[in-house]
Design a protein around this nucleic acid. Structure first.
Lengths: 172, 172
DNA sequence: CGCAATTCAGTTGTGCGCAATTCAATGGCT
DNA sequence: AGCCATTGAATTGCGCACAACTGAATTGCG
């Protein structure tokens, strides 16, 4: 009962559609939306786990890079994370306000700003060490399955980045 | 040359670490970061393709749901997309300003707001029909591979959502 | 050497996502 | 009928992502 609005289910004015049809819109929604939803779900779990560390998820990513590669200029940091200064500048300011990093203009190149871990920033790594295990547990995936998913996602990202470049109106 | 900052690569003060060790932080970064990056890459491609339609990616998702299910109250719309009114209210206002939808309080339940497609909103579907094909092409993935990825992501999302509930400090 | 193009951070503006709050309408319970 | 808990939308506040722009420092080229 209550049969509301069948806006396009099987409109008689259109043939069942060959290729560019209804089912495509459905399929499409599934791919992009799944990824979107999974990303947000991941974010939600991280939000809970990182609350103790006083970090947001993107801040956690920045700390991961710093822990792994040591002090870095903002530019390098951004290239690791695929983020630009518009995102990083305010984020790093907040990390600085939290006492986890310092920002200092490089002496050799005054354009560049060096991001350095403070003692507190380095110490925080100890607490972060148990996060990955809890995340892995939350996914319910095995290690090999995670690895497989990771490989697919990276391939997807590479393909999408390449396509975005080609698709851009003014592209070289 | 220029061997900078090896903050924790193999610090001699720590044993090679058994389980809760360095490699975990690396692995972890790969899972979550891959997903994060893939999501943003997808977003970038959609941004380009949807510019012609005058839609952002989340707005496109809303339109997809409306095209598929017809007019809906905000609440239902949100349950399809896993979004709350805090996100949807301003988004729908923008869609309304663009002339694609109308918002009207329900007569039967004054708390509820019904979102309806306008003629322009319905007409936009014709232009949207070619988006999925171009997206699928951009991924470089085959249909079955897409389907497989979709299944994994949905499973992941379900697991993460469940874990987030359990993990929450005050959980029933 | 000196001027122009490039590089790097930062700022501004827009939009999404989510938590927390507010407010009105509704429904259940006595 | 009257009261209270619940529901639905909206608003506020914060943080992230990205485009566009600013401004300073550096590089390169004639």
């Amino acid at each position: 009962m209550a049969r509301k609005s069948y806006s396009w289910g099987m409109t008689p004015t259109q043939p069942p559609s060959t290729e560019t049809g209804e089912n495509w819109l459905r399929l499409d929604r599934q791919i992009c939306f799944s990824l979107h939803a999974a990303s947000r779900a991941f974010n939600g779990v991280y939000r809970v786990l990182l609350k103790d560390l006083g970090l947001t998820y993107p801040q956690y990513l920045v700390m991961l890079v710093l822990w792994e590669h040591g002090d870095l200029p903002v530019k390098k940091l951004g290239s690791f994370l695929r983020l630009d200064s518009g995102t990083l500048s305010p984020l790093l300011k907040r990390l600085e306000a939290a006492g986890l990093v310092t920002r200092e203009r490089s002496a050799r190149d005054e354009r560049s700003v060096e991001v350095r871990l403070t003692g507190a920033g380095l110490a925080l790594r100890e607490q972060a060490l148990q996060v990955p295990r809890r995340i892995a547990a939350a996914t319910g995936f095995g290690l090999d399955e995670i690895r497989d998913l990771h490989e697919r996602l990276d391939r997807l990202t590479t393909a999408l980045d390449a396509a975005a470049l080609e698709e851009t109106p003014g592209c070289p």
